[in-house]
Amino acid sequence: MKDLKNLIHHCQFSLVAASLVLTGGSEAYASSAEAAVDNSFAAIERAVEDAGFNSVVTIDHARLAAAEGVEMPPSRVQIFSDPSINTSILSDNVRAGLDLPFRVLSFAQDGTAKDIYTNAEFLKIRHSLDNQQSLNNFGIRLNAVVDGAGATPAPTDGLTPDFGIIELTSPLSVAEAVSNLTRIVTAQDDTVWFGEIDFAKQAYKHGVTLPDAVLLLFGGPAPGGVAMADFPAIGLDAFCQKLLVYAGENGGSVVIFNDIAALAELHYGSSAKPHHALNERLTATFKKALEQKSLAATKD
């Protein structure tokens, strides 16, 4: 598999290239809301660095979407990590890896810049976590970034255990499933690959043994931009689609990912056709990858 740092470097290069393509773009895009989101994003980015986190990837949803001819409100997400915190949370429930590592979204809603993040309470409810010390440590580390930023946590009203999680199973090992999923995702013309995080390898370095668990990060600028156009807050969990692959208790692997329509309903109380269409597309694509022992590179 490709080295994560190389993938991140490639992603960052792609983002710069996209920005250059857009230089001198439409006046509508160069708005005060865009400037406010950029300023907010920069402040969070400095806080992430000052707090000593490992930066995983930063994604400019709107500029990537605009490069594909799709308009959406300004939106930028930062994903950053503390492997020791990841390990502690995953020791409680490996499925919580779907909501790790840390992330903060800077976006515009109705012309107003906002920041939103996933807090410990969200993880506790969605993944039925009961190690309060791990959750407290998660919150302390995250507060080093979001305190004073005017950021708000993602909504938890209506959140229940396993809310908005689509699950698939496969007889493939985690390594085989990751290989097949990586191949089928990267073969799609409208998809950008952002990298992967091997949680079990991180845990081993901290003296903890976890089941094999790998988080895949990717997104589709055009379909993602359409899905976020009227629902920008879902960029906290969508557009950079997260796919967690972990070892099943009785062998094989389990694959879980976010139900985009459910997350739209959590944030906005409603969903739209593009959300359901993306769910159907992702589910069909992942099922195809998990059905075969060895998947040659193909395009959907």
Rank of each mutant, 00 (worst) to 15 (best):
G235I: 01
T182H: 00
G225P: 15
L216Y: 05
C240S: 13
S134G: 01
L181N: 10
L263E: 05
Y246N: 12
R141K: 04
A247Y: 13
A247V: 08
L244F: 04
V226C: 14
D190H: 04
G207R: 02
L135F: 03
R183C: 10
D130L: 05
Q241N: 14
A177D: 00
I256T: 02
G158Q: 09
L236Q: 12
F239G: 09
F239W: 12
S179R: 05
K242Y: 08
E249L: 09
L181E: 12
Y204F: 12
F218Q: 07
V178N: 03
P153L: 00
P153C: 01
V178Y: 01
G207E: 09
G139R: 08
P153Y: 07
N131M: 03
R141Y: 06
G139S: 12
D147F: 03
D189L: 05
G150M: 03
Q132S: 07
D147L: 13
T182R: 00
T186Y: 04
T156A: 07
I256A: 04
A177V: 15
L210A: 15
P161N: 04
S253T: 11
S179T: 14
D212C: 10
M228F: 01
G252S: 13
V178Q: 02
L263T: 08
L168S: 08
P232Y: 09
D157A: 13
A203P: 06
T191L: 15
D162C: 10
A238L: 08
D259C: 06
V192K: 15
S170K: 06
G148E: 07
F239H: 13
Q132C: 04
P171W: 01
D259S: 07
S128A: 03
A247P: 00
L135A: 11
L263V: 07
S128H: 04
W193A: 10
I184F: 15
F163P: 02
D230K: 10
L216H: 02
Y204T: 10
I166G: 08
L263A: 07
D157F: 12
Y204W: 11
I234S: 09
S134E: 01
Q133F: 03
G252A: 08
Q188F: 10
G139K: 09
D237T: 07
G148Q: 10
W193G: 06
G220A: 10
L210V: 02
N137V: 08
A213G: 09
G224V: 14
E196I: 05
R183Q: 15
R141E: 14
P171V: 03
G252W: 04
G251D: 11
F163G: 05
P211E: 14
F218T: 07
T169Q: 15
T182E: 03
E167R: 15
T169L: 11
A213Y: 14
L243F: 04
A233Q: 05
T191S: 11
D198Q: 05
A229P: 04
A262T: 11
C240R: 08
I140E: 03
A262F: 06
P232Q: 01
D198M: 01
N137E: 04
T186D: 11
P232N: 01
K205V: 08
V254D: 14
T191Y: 05
N137S: 08
G225M: 14
V178A: 00
I184Y: 13
Q188V: 07
D190P: 05
F199Q: 01
D259N: 09
E176G: 04
L168A: 07
D189Q: 10
A177H: 02
G195E: 00
L217N: 12
G148R: 04
L181I: 15
W193P: 07
Q188Y: 08
L236C: 08
T152R: 02
D162A: 12
V145K: 02
L135Y: 00
T152F: 01
